[in-house]
């Protein structure tokens, strides 16, 4: 169809042609639209339906919605609550600050389980959260219908995101190509007081508090008041969420390269 409707078609100077030619074009378009409309009746017919994806074509041989665009679609998130480790990385990476970590049932009394709650009024569908999620439990689906009469319904609780997960829509786990984070959690030993905050809050429980020998005090010297333990990070289990760094009261944990 596109070849027939080129914009370069100049209006004729002949008054009869001036009227007749556009009318012929319109009639052709009318007939085409009757036989093979370019639009689908959206809420009733959907592009997800393969029937329409093949039928509705933008240009000859190029169906809408098939290929890269559809497969890379970033819609509503799906959250698998069961595998979420409450690492906070999603909330941390969100550029729009639309993720809030809310408590969900299932955590232990000391260490509450927190999962992301997403405010779609703010979300820009960048996918950073999904990219950051170390467990792959936060993915983006092809769901795009979000309209609602209430603004409060734009906020999806973890349970609601889990409902999306359970619909088994095509998921788009976003994994950007980039070098892996080589940095590790390092400790500045003299500052540590052995408070256990990092080990308590580490979502992967990869911090172990190891006993260290209590030094014998020299005469006149006062030993610092502390627990004689120090965190040791199991580097292969660490998801590099930074929770330990942020909870440390003495700011003695930091990012750094072992090399």
């Amino acid at each position: 169809m596109t070849e027939e409707l080129t914009a370069t078609e100049k209006p004729s100077d002949n008054p009869v042609l001036y009227v007749a030619r556009p009318m012929a074009t319109a009639a052709r378009q009318f007939a085409k639209s009757l036989l093979r409309p370019s639009t689908i009746v959206y809420p009733y017919e959907r592009l997800e339906d393969p029937k329409f994806r093949e039928q509705v074509q933008v240009a000859s041989g190029k169906p809408i919605g098939v290929g890269a665009v559809w497969d890379n679609y970033r819609g509503v998130h799906a959250l698998n609550i069961a595998t979420c480790i409450s690492c906070n990385l999603c909330a941390f990476s969100c550029p729009d600050l639309c993720i809030e970590m809310v408590t969900v049932p299932g955590g232990d009394p000391k260490h509450a389980k927190k999962c992301p709650e997403i405010d779609y009024g703010k979300c820009s569908y960048c996918g950073f959260c999904s990219d950051a999620c170390p467990e792959g439990c936060l993915t983006m689906t092809t769901r795009y219908e979000l309209s609602t009469p209430k603004r409060s319904e734009m906020v999806y609780s973890p349970q609601k995101l889990y409902e999306v997960y359970r619909t088994k829509l095509p998921m788009n786990p976003i994994r950007l190509e980039r070098p892996a984070n080589e940095d590790s959690i390092l400790l500045d030993p003299p500052l540590c007081i052995g408070c256990n905050a990092c080990a308590r809050d580490c979502p992967t429980q990869c911090i172990t508090m190891l006993e260290i020998p209590k030094p014998t005090a020299k005469p006149g010297e006062k030993l610092p008041k502390r627990i004689w333990k120090e965190p040791v990070v199991n580097d292969s289990d660490c998801v590099r969420c930074g929770t330990c760094v942020s909870v440390c009261p003495k700011e003695c944990l930091f990012w750094g390269s072992r090399r």
Partner: peptide, 13 residues
């Protein structure tokens, strides 16, 4: 409806 078809739309549905 007619105008919709002329413009390759469907008009009120």
């Amino acid at each position: 409806k007619l105008l919709g078809r002329f413009m390759d739309r469907r008009g009120a549905m």
